[in-house]
Design a protein around this nucleic acid. Structure first.
Ligand code: MN
Ligand code: MN
Ligand code: ZN
Ligand code: ZN
Lengths: 140, 140
DNA sequence: ATGTTAATTTGTAATCGTTACAATTTTATA
DNA sequence: TATAAAATTGTAACGATTACAAATTAACAT
């Protein structure tokens, strides 16, 4: 679902975000990473390429992206906020062994929830915790 | 589903937790509250009744409860950890207006998720964000 | 009961992720 | 080129949580 973004600059513009170099690189990095990185992971990765980069800029930029709805914030652990360029509703699985956060596809519309029928739903988050198959095999 | 707990002391004992006065009151407070309180809310509520209570004790006790599986930790916002004496799988809805966190019942087994079939699932969390019906009415 | 040890609670300091804010740099506009 | 606006940066402040050692309480043996 993220394949349609060919030009990051144009994509940011179409979402009313001026495409500065830092913003472009941060968004590109999010697009290319499948591991739902934290601010620190993004900063450590890009500081090699952008030596003047400030961690504050990473925070500011991600907050901007979230406000404009092109990035979603994933809070599984307190004290560890992760970011995802895939804003479609999907599930996340956090492995308690290798700490990876993996995606899984799911359709929440089948849940047919009665209790909040009258509510206006803006976001839907589903996450599981456990042991991934790789770690299960290693643990034999 | 929480109605079966009649004697909090016995309940804690049956979960290998020595029922000190602080632990009993903290658990009783969680049982009686429907608003998924934070550490600070619990502390502020109980300090009137237990003047010597330390916030560290509230943290220690809740961590102990979580480790023993009798309380679940709810992380919807980063920087705001909430606690729930209902450990059954159920959904949470956080209203962006009144900030309340409400329960809703749901059966996640109907989701039939393929991607993590081989995984060992230890926890399941579902939460929505939006505007509750009360706030929708007021907002007219 | 009394002394002794273990468990629990408490207060303070430290940690860490995030934000506030002012200064600097870059970009847009006249 | 001059001027204003926007973005970036660095540092300080903040707040939730944890680390740790001292104090209190409970459990246990004499
Ligand atoms: Mn994802
Ligand atoms: Mn609940
Ligand atoms: Zn794993
Ligand atoms: Zn509301």
């Amino acid at each position: 679902m993220l394949g349609k973004i060919t030009n990051v600059g144009e994509f940011l513009k179409s979402n009313d975000i001026k495409p500065s170099y830092q913003r472009m690189r941060i968004f590109e990095y999010l697009l290319g990473s499948k591991d739902h990185p934290t601010v620190d992971m993004i900063y450590k990765e890009l500081i090699g390429e952008i030596p003047t980069l400030s961690k504050t800029t990473v925070y500011n930029t991600l907050n901007l992206f979230v406000e404009h709805g092109i990035v979603s914030r994933i809070t599984i652990e307190e004290n560890e906020t992760r970011y995802d360029a895939d804003t479609a509703v999907h599930g996340h699985f956090k492995c308690e062994k290798c700490e990876k956060v993996l995606d899984f596809v799911t359709d929440l519309s089948v849940l047919n929830i009665q209790d909040i029928k009258e509510f206006q739903i803006n976001q839907q988050h589903l996450y599981f915790r456990g042991i991934c198959s790789d770690c299960l095999k290693k643990g034999e």
